[in-house]
Amino acid sequence: MNFNFLSPVSDMVLAHNELLSQQALGRKLRIHSKRNGLPDLEGVGIAIIGVLENRNDSNYIGEEFQINEIRKSLYALFPGSWTTIVADLGDINKGETVEDTYFALKTTLAILINKQIIPIIIGGSQDLTYANYRAYDAIIPMVNVVNVDCKFDLGDSTKPIKNNSFVGKIILDKPYNLFNYATVGYQTYFNSQEEIDLMDKLYFESYRLGQISKDITLVEPVLRDANIVSIDLNSVKSSEVSLNQKYSPNGFDGKEICAISRYAGISNKVSSIGIYEYSPSKDDEITSMLIAQIIWYFIEGVNFRVKDDDFTNENNYQKYITLVDDQELIFYKSNKTGRWWIEIPFLTEVNNKLKRHTLLPCMHQDYLDACNNIVPDRWYKAFQKNCI
């Protein structure tokens, strides 16, 4: 197995780990170390990877990047009653060029995803999401990306890729594998009107910070439909992080960002997650602890996954049919979890790759809205994308 790109976890972190309680998470991980090499991946469900690349940060000024503090915070936490085995595979160092780092990340992720191991990427700049997306080229025909961010990061795709423009590259670069892109927690004043209009025109989903803060459960169906989740730490408000990390007085609080991470973990479809835009600093304990807790909640979520999306057996679900403006909408509700889906009708004359996208996760509220003759927004956007 080609994991040549991975360098071991630093001896300093491992020495720190030796001092922890036997019950601590760090003592239960399979860790890539200089002494023992790569751990056995047999039975591993989740793998942590650091990517020490931040050169495409639009504010990059040559500073070094490391995630030792995050590891120390994470290792010191206590696991829940988990059955999933977690490995820490160490770091992908900066390549000669950023493209080399992308290649190393893409190759490593493709191996893990094919082995049904969920990678948790702790990264520098968020443009690494592009390499994460490209890892799926030979794995699945269409990919859904959810970006937890205060900005859309569409940018100008004619210019070189940066951490604030990588989504434009994802949309326009071949092969075209992106089906849906959703931004969770965007703040209007950080986004140009052109970008907001483009999100609408492409029938992509966007959820404002205020919407989500009012009702955090709105993100659950969006994450249930995601393959890739990318979290930008700048979506967290300044009061929750250390001096170097401060970005905006508004944003998610620690509890909200951890809840979002747990929803991502519970999703049966999420097969990779990345946490980006970490800025190490001397007074860093608070940010590294927050990231450690975001990772903890994701692992917790994965341990609570329930296979509730098998609709071949009629005993597993209830089916509801409503009419909205002469359009028949068909809803399914899982008997196991009470989660809801809505069927997207297929246009037979359209050549599309989406045979497996027939069912779209939704909320009970969408069904209630449909009963009151209101077309659910997610259904409308997915239907329009099918027509394009």
Rank of each mutant, 00 (worst) to 15 (best):
L6H: 01
S10E: 10
L14F: 00
A15N: 14
Q22R: 13
I31P: 04
G45K: 15
I49K: 08
G50E: 15
L52Q: 08
R55V: 07
G62N: 08
F65P: 00
L74H: 04
Y75I: 00
Y75R: 00
T83C: 00
D88C: 00
G95Q: 07
T97Y: 10
T97C: 09
V98Y: 13
E99R: 11
T101M: 04
T101G: 02
T101L: 06
L109E: 03
N114H: 03
N114T: 04
Q116E: 14
G123S: 11
D127Q: 03
L128A: 02
T129Q: 06
Y130G: 02
A138Y: 03
V146D: 05
D149N: 14
K151A: 10
S157A: 10
F166H: 15
F166R: 02
V167Y: 06
I170F: 05
F179K: 03
V184C: 13
V184F: 06
G185E: 11
G185L: 08
T188Q: 12
I196D: 03
R208M: 03
L223E: 01
N227H: 15
L233G: 10
S238D: 12
S239V: 11
V241H: 11
N244C: 08
P249T: 12
G251R: 10
K255F: 12
I260L: 14
S261P: 12
Y263G: 00
Y263R: 01
I266L: 12
Y276K: 07
P280N: 11
K282M: 05
M289K: 11
I295D: 09
F298C: 07
F304Y: 06
R305A: 00
V306G: 00
D310H: 12
I321E: 14
L323G: 08
V324K: 14
D326C: 09
Q327D: 14
Q327R: 14
N335K: 14
I344G: 07
F346I: 02
L347E: 07
K353A: 12
R356N: 11
R356V: 00
T358Y: 14
H364F: 09
P376M: 09
A382Y: 07
F383V: 03
C387I: 02
